[in-house]
Design a binder for these strands. Structure first.
Lengths: 124, 124, 124, 124
DNA sequence: GTGGTCTAGACCACA
DNA sequence: GTGGTCTAGACCACC
């Protein structure tokens, strides 16, 4: 599991970390119950402050994706609660993306093809 | 064509305006070549600073969605460049959304159903 | 609206601030839409670091009690979403409190009396 | 009397043990004068460090819920001091919970209903 | 001038 | 040795 942080982009580092870990869980690269790197270790590895990692972990914890315990560190949650719905924020984002896709000339079939490709990537 | 600015949400106002205009073009509410309100008129209408509108228009122009001419103001571009591809940013966002959807228990069919619903909304 | 931070207690400062603001909203001391102190002003007033206040505001924002905007600062949300249920955490806490109350000799009526008293305090 | 330690929750293990024993006494599962398991036995049973159990017992002793005697181990106290009042800490917690309940749209009757339900659970 | 992000330190409770 | 909290600074985007 390798995290890559992009610099020339305006997504906060802690969000990028949060997103990458979600990719990892979703794709199976991180298994249920699997141990995550310690805050300090991950901070050293990607060269950021420990608080930045801590913030990412706290978000993931608040969202129900991981659990953290004092002595044991952070682990992927065994059972992640499934609402089976997109958040309002994600619905809004998806609408924006689809609007832009349509303006770029992509039809519904083209878009679905992209979705399928990503699904396979994530659905290893 | 009515612009609705949501407050209590983290998207900058100029981005919201940019997005809404894209929805408008995508859905046909704004036609190719159609005149957009002047910066000052739109600023007055939705009660924000003129600089904010100006910034939104500049972005839309840089992205190739509108053209601005001296004295005549801004118009929707006649032929919007069709790359038929998602931008890297949008691909990344879509991947994030799909990852979260999958973790929430949505299968590929569930997701495609949401896409279809939004497509119809935008494609009205 | 005065915030009082207690020191000899192991509740994190940002939590205490979060709680006090919730008391304020619940009791009506803080009205819907009312402006909260700026992060820096409140930090100076109670003598803590600005990040500590910021963290409290972010929690309140994530919980849907307040909204924050770049230029306008933080305000009490106009319509606070009502689940009409206690969180699991609060149910667990309430169970613990009731157990301890019972062991101290309080009957159900005694406990209800305390609840009523607090309700009036909060329900000004 | 079975102790269940929940993981993925922010309450320290020694506190969870302390709370569960209080539930037990309150509900009658543990009777006055009843012998508690030895520190080592309980530690082995639920798979935690003996120090953790010891800390829980020390707290319960300091709070007056149990007594410890040389050689004989720990027992539930015969007569638990009945102040018939909530501790200041519990009053504060209850106030917080009621404030949150009220903001979630629960009226006093709704809250009392929850209290009643828990009372029956604890009062079995 | 606002909230948001980030750093480089520090101390603490838990186990 | 872990995550959690806190400080005192700094810079940034937004408006």
């Amino acid at each position: 599991m390798i995290l890559r942080i992009e610099e020339g982009i305006d997504i906060p580092i802690y969000q990028q970390i949060r997103n990458q870990i979600i990719y990892g869980i979703s794709s199976g690269a991180l298994e249920a119950g699997e141990q995550l790197p310690t805050v300090r270790a991950l901070a050293a590895e990607i060269g950021v402050n420990a608080m930045t990692i801590s913030k990412a972990y706290q978000i993931l914890k608040a969202e129900g994706y991981i659990v953290t315990e004092r002595k044991r560190g952070a682990r992927v949650r065994e059972k992640i609660a499934g609402s089976k719905k997109l958040s309002l924020t994600n619905q809004r984002e998806l609408k924006r993306i689809i609007s832009e896709a349509k303006l770029s000339g992509m039809g519904r079939a083209d878009f679905t093809r992209v979705v399928d490709r990503i699904y396979e990537e994530v659905d290893s």
